[in-house]
Design a protein around this nucleic acid. Structure first.
Length: 557
RNA sequence: GCGCUCGUAGCUCAGUAGGAUAGAGCAUUGGAUUUCUAAUCCAAGGGUCCCAGGUUCGAAUCCUGGCGGGCGUACCA
């Protein structure tokens, strides 16, 4: 039984008040806990002062309590400093040491999911980053996680790409930069098609041959997919993004017919205006879900239903997350509803984790018609700008490489997840590359600073220990850090990485205040050892947090 | 039209289950370095929490109705 439960139980057993609201205080000034007395006054009809006295009397023999204070209808309770510190340190250190068991079920997270025949653009950045961080958070909070990349590797557009390669392509060029080269061929195809409409038939024919697995076509397709993935993975690596499996649309293709049959057998499918659809109750206010076009070609809803069933039935996912933009909210609501109609047990398993769009204000990166912003270019641009700033300082070439890469990518990642994912993000270079304030560089700088002090102190930072002394200056940090598990659990429940981002910013703020107030490596040995252990604990939390965010710490800054 | 979503300081955003004086960063102004990295810290100014009702002892937070922005709304994904 922890302290909160103990207080609640004693009050319950010894007074008439059964529904107590006990709040843990986050910052100092109003005690460590407070009980809100208004509701008790209301239900009992007694005066607040009297209730307060009754509660105090009941709690009289809890020796950990050092003080009571009745202000504005709140009974604030203070705990003895040493008891509080013991508890907070114990918690703070155990969080760093205990390895969580993965026994909370299997989560399958679908994120990034680029279309190979289309550019890997900035539009995929949010899904990639948010999905990866959520996967890390689920792992950290005790879930088994399967990270899947549902790549767009099938469909008529591949017929166009193949025709493009056959007519104008150069495999060497494609291998060097598949993303841009394939796009160029795709664009070229459309330009030529405007002049020679018969190209369309050629593309259709090419895709038909691909479907029939004709050797030449199938091998070319395999090649395109392979080099594209290899290229995209370079970007993933820079962002600290990982996947367990690439399962694209082509993977699910063989199962589509079976899915359709199941839906028909369950009497869910209707023919409407020539198309095959699933209709919903009037009260859902959802338009029907289209599965097949009138020409019988499948639509992406059918592909997503197929993939969903596979993830639950074959991959045994207990929870499925789809990290896809908010503009597809309706689509997923429909797909989920179709699956729920098929099997009621599926209700509540699937969740669409949406996010807002990027909005561009800078003219440089603005999306003019047909002007694609590649993900790779965004990262490069960020790294170049960081390098420009760093070049004024005294760093070696290798240090510059290290700093600009880590700070540049860190800045892009942090810009993406520093606020509520549902909101649109203003993408402005001024903001992304601001090195001050609530930014990734601020966090990285703080970590580097701590490391530098630890190095100077010749401190072996592999282990964490409780400092031998307690200082008042530690308490805000401790209180904050003690909440790490709660914070992460909240971030997981809401699928909100910005909760972790905010946690790290505050943590760094506490350290930097401390740094400016007290000298870490002071004369007095015991105090010095204490401070060193203290900042080492902070560093461990920053490292843990940045690791989840996929942000790396440079050697120097 | 209907559905979803957002609206908090000049700008960008936090605000945990409805609780005390609504908080940060940027920008502005002033201050801190013979000292562990000033990419830091301390301080000041700056608010009809879009508007109007309602529920409540108590509302930025919940409900209803407006207003404004974004997205979606049958054969693209």
């Amino acid at each position: 039984m922890n302290f909160e439960e103990k207080i609640l139980k004693i009050i319950k057993d010894n007074t008439e008040y059964k529904n107590i609201i006990l709040k843990k205080q986050k910052t100092g000034g109003f005690g460590d806990y407070s009980i809100i007395l208004f509701p008790l006054a209301k239900s009992s009809g007694k005066q607040i002062e009297i209730i307060s006295d009754e509660i105090k009397k009941a709690l009289n023999n809890i020796e950990e309590i050092s003080d009571y204070e009745l202000i504005n209808g709140f009974l604030n309770i203070s705990i003895k400093k040493d008891v509080l510190n013991d508890r907070m340190w114990k918690k703070a250190i155990s969080i760093l040491q205990i390895k969580k068991e993965k026994n909370r079920g299997k989560v399958i997270i679908d994120y990034s999911s680029p279309n190979i025949a289309k550019p890997f653009s900035i539009g995929h950045l949010r899904s990639t980053i948010i999905g990866n961080i959520l996967a890390n958070i689920y792992e950290e909070t005790g879930f088994e996680v399967l990270r899947v990349n549902h790549i767009g590797d099938w469909g008529t557009q591949f017929g166009k790409v193949i025709v493009g390669i056959q007519k104008w392509g150069n495999l060497k060029k494609i291998e060097l930069d598949p993303v841009k080269e394939l796009l160029a061929l795709y664009v070229k195809f459309h330009e030529e098609q405007a002049i020679y409409p018969e190209l369309d038939d050629e593309a259709r024919e090419a895709f038909r041959k691909l479907e029939n697995k004709e050797k030449e076509y199938y091998e070319l397709w395999q090649y395109i997919v392979r080099v594209s993935i290899e290229n995209i993975e370079k970007t993933y690596k820079r962002l600290g993004v990982k996947f367990d499996r690439y399962m694209g649309e082509s993977f699910y293709e063989p199962f589509m017919e079976k899915t359709m049959q199941r839906l028909v057998d369950a009497e869910l499918v209707k023919e409407s205006q020539g198309a095959w659809v699933v209709e919903f109750d009037e009260k859902t206010k959802m338009p029907p879900c289209l599965l097949r076009k009138k020409d019988k070609a499948s639509l992406y809803a059918l592909r997503d239903v197929t993939a969903l069933l596979y993830r639950i039935e074959e991959l045994k996912g207990n929870k499925l997350l789809y990290v896809v933009g908010n503009e597809q909210k309706l689509h997923f609501a429909q797909v989920f509803k179709v699956c729920e109609k098929l099997n009621k047990d599926f209700i509540g398993i699937m969740e669409h984790v949406g996010f807002g769009l990027y909005k561009f204000k800078d003219s440089k990166m603005s999306t003019r018609k047909g002007n694609v912003i590649f993900m790779e270019d965004v990262l490069d641009e960020a790294c170049i700008k960081v390098r420009e700033i760093m070049e004024e300082r005294d760093f070696s070439k290798t240090e510059l490489d290290d700093i600009s890469e880590k700070v540049g990518t860190g800045a892009v990642i942090f810009n993406d997840i520093s606020s509520d994912r549902n909101k649109d993000v203003d993408f402005s270079w001024d903001k992304v590359l601001d090195l001050n304030g609530e930014t990734a560089p601020y966090i990285q700088y703080t970590a580097v600073r701590i490391k530098s002090i630890l190095k100077k102190a010749e401190f072996n930072s592999d282990n964490v220990n409780r400092p031998c002394m307690d200082f008042e200056e530690y308490s805000d940090t401790l209180r904050h850090v003690e909440d790490f598990e709660n914070m992460l659990e909240r971030a997981r429940e809401k699928n909100q990485p910005h909760i972790l981002a905010g946690f790290l910013i505050s943590l760094c703020g506490y350290f930097n205040s401390f740094y400016n107030k007290k000298r870490v490596l002071c004369e007095e040995k015991e105090e010095r050892d204490s401070h060193v252990e203290f900042i080492n604990v902070i560093l461990k939390y920053i490292e843990k947090g940045l690791d989840i965010l996929g942000i790396k710490i440079p050697e120097k800054m």
